[in-house]
Design a protein around this nucleic acid. Structure first.
Lengths: 207, 207
DNA sequence: CATATTATTTACTGATCGATCAATAAAGAA
DNA sequence: TTCTTTATTGATCGATCAGTAAATAATATG
């Protein structure tokens, strides 16, 4: 047998517990707003032990980002169940992207914190991530269904902006409408497709 | 004469100095990331004196927000030189909004911090601010130039999203293009107008 | 078994946090 | 002038910050 360790020491579980708590707290309160003591208390891992495994607060932060990006890349790159590859049409692509964004709230909040805190160090795999997403969206955008007079690259940025913004602010804005969140979200995403793709007169069947 | 006080005591100037430094530091590093000591050092106002005038760190923060919103409202509400009222057409409205947003970076960053830090207390005048902007945009949007099949309220949110996003990320995205920031910004704003307004076949003169 | 390595805890450091103290200087009121 | 109010300072509070040294318990290795 390899290891029966269920009691006492299990460094993998220790690291994972610390990472879980750190991810939650960093996403919730930002890097400056989270303390190692609280991460230790929440995770059940003693503070010096976190330092033993991750070296410093920055090291812990980097480990959180690394793990998140590894998961994120696995999900969105070809082969993942929610991969952008599997999205056949424009509206499905938009919906898939939105689902990924709104389903990874910790990741999105951490990116937002990093942006505000003016992090100079790039995220591990950030470039690949952005390129993969932009690449797929752009391929879809040049599939002749994009409205004429719309620059594909700018359109890519705009779609990203619309999806990010709604994912971050949907609860606030949904309270203005009468409809439930899911309904209004669907309409919002449909309108994105409308704006960028459906100006070609008739388009019932795709491909 | 009223007061010749140029030396020694001048509580108004004191408050103003503290507010200036606090606004800059809160916008730059967030509430949790800014310390009263640093605000005191940067402003030249001693730390206990800041407490004397504003009571607490929270009180200072509230005062910063209050002043900013008062200025912002004065600028954007009817009568201001950059008022949304004076914007005659759709593209001018978009440009005016963008200019206001990108010209008030401190305000936008503070709003972003507040959003991430999940502030429960609403900003003073936040509701009026949002309503005023949405109201003007919506009036413009229902001026029959809006593309059919686009919900005016959702369009309002989308335009806000597109402008906010570009204002926050323009430098990053502009580095992808070859053009200078102003040129690509102009094209980005034009594309917004294109998307939402210019699908009516011919539209040279408005009204 | 013995021993070296890895994992974890207890107790602590110096620095900094937000906040407050008593004392005092300046301005206004009498 | 004298007295009261307002503005400002230096010193300091207890709490908490990130980080660490040393001792110890568990595991792996011989």
């Amino acid at each position: 047998m390899r290891h029966t360790k269920t009691r006492g020491r299990d460094p993998d579980t220790t690291r994972c517990s610390a990472l879980d708590a750190a991810q939650r707290l960093f996403a919730e309160k930002g890097f400056a707003g989270s303390s190692m003591r609280e991460i230790a208390a929440v995770s059940g891992v003693s503070q010096p032990l976190i330092y033993y495994h991750f070296g410093s607060k920055e090291g812990l932060y980097s480990a959180v980002k690394e793990r998140l990006m590894k998961e994120g890349l696995r999900a969105i790159l070809p082969g993942g169940s929610d991969s952008l590859e599997t999205a056949p049409g424009a509206i499905e692509l938009i919906r898939t992207t939105y689902n990924f964004v709104s389903g990874n709230e910790d990741l999105m909040r951490l990116v937002a914190w990093a942006h505000l805190e003016r992090e100079n160090t790039p995220w591990p795999g950030e470039a690949e991530f952005t390129l993969a997403a932009a690449n797929h969206i752009q391929r879809r955008l040049s599939d002749s269904v994009l409205r004429k007079s719309v620059d594909p690259l700018i359109a890519t940025i705009m779609i990203e902006a619309l999806i990010f913004f709604w994912s971050a602010n949907r609860r606030y804005y949904a309270s203005i409408f009468d409809e439930p969140l899911e309904k209004i979200t669907e309409r919002y995403l449909d309108q994105i497709a409308d704006l960028f793709f459906r100006d070609t007169p008739a388009r019932k069947d795709k491909e």
